[in-house]
Design a protein around this nucleic acid. Sequence first.
DNA 1: CCGGTATTGTATGGCGCCAGACGTTCTGGC
DNA 2: GCCAGAACGTCTGGCGCCATACAATACCGG
Lengths: 154, 154
Amino acid sequence: MAEDRTGGHELDAPPWLRVEATLMATARLIREAYDARLEALGLHLSQASLLSYVADFGPQAQSRIAERLALGRAATGSMVDALEARGLVRRLPDPDDRRVWLVEITPEGKDVVAEIAEVDQRLRSELRAGTTREDRQQLAELLVRLQSNLAALE
Amino acid sequence: MAEDRTGGHELDAPPWLRVEATLMATARLIREAYDARLEALGLHLSQASLLSYVADFGPQAQSRIAERLALGRAATGSMVDALEARGLVRRLPDPDDRRVWLVEITPEGKDVVAEIAEVDQRLRSELRAGTTREDRQQLAELLVRLQSNLAALE
DNA sequence: CCGGTATTGTATGGCGCCAGACGTTCTGGC
DNA sequence: GCCAGAACGTCTGGCGCCATACAATACCGG
């Protein structure tokens, strides 16, 4: 991509914001790829992540879900609305705290999660082409590092 | 990352879509960090990128800018509107094609670009804490690879 | 030169998400 | 017990961006 054809400029100029922009663009492309493949299931990446999360970890409060998915509480709430309307998820009152809803996966939701996992695995293997396991592991670590640096900034 | 296959339970399972979600969340955090620091200049990351781009490469058609920044033409157009309203950028008619506007940086724009570069360099050095040059280079390469894989999918 | 097609920039409507304000409920110091 | 403050979930408004449709202009085969 960045073959800044500036003839005799920098060799591989890391032109300022370019790397960040690339990261963001890649993230968007990935989301679009997932969204396209999840469209048949009637949901998009964030919803699929939410569903997988409650499937894995059992009934969870919305705040915790929001925190885990790095989303806002409002967005999480409306996503739960949508998933609930489709019967993939159910809201249970928390017996110990009347403010919170525990979001639980339904049997229908579990079926969908299985399909999501398939979609995910297929797409992942396509994306992995030409990359090594170490590459990906290092990417994951770098992302974590970046996040902690970002958190330390504020 | 994907082959954790629920051997029983994982301790810190990186289940399925989690890595992608992390990527997206990181991208968003980075954008927010930039936006916060660029707020004093009255612009956000995409506008700053646009400005830097036309500063580096001279007058460019909006479509080329959009393509280079991985944005839509409409979004690019309204960003140019905003930058033009602030006098940071100017629209010149292309003498060879009456459909296109050539977007050119103004002297005031150049001043702002210098400030952007400063902000960028400072934030970059903060983000780099605890990462090596190889890490970052590998990240850049991996992103390129991912993008090309994504492009090949459609 | 003429017609169809591609391309440029713009306008419109929609989507995902956030930030702030709000009512409700829990919690800890007095 | 009681009351200030924190936490949960919801609502509203806004932002950045996209997809689509559109008019104007360019390109190309007859």
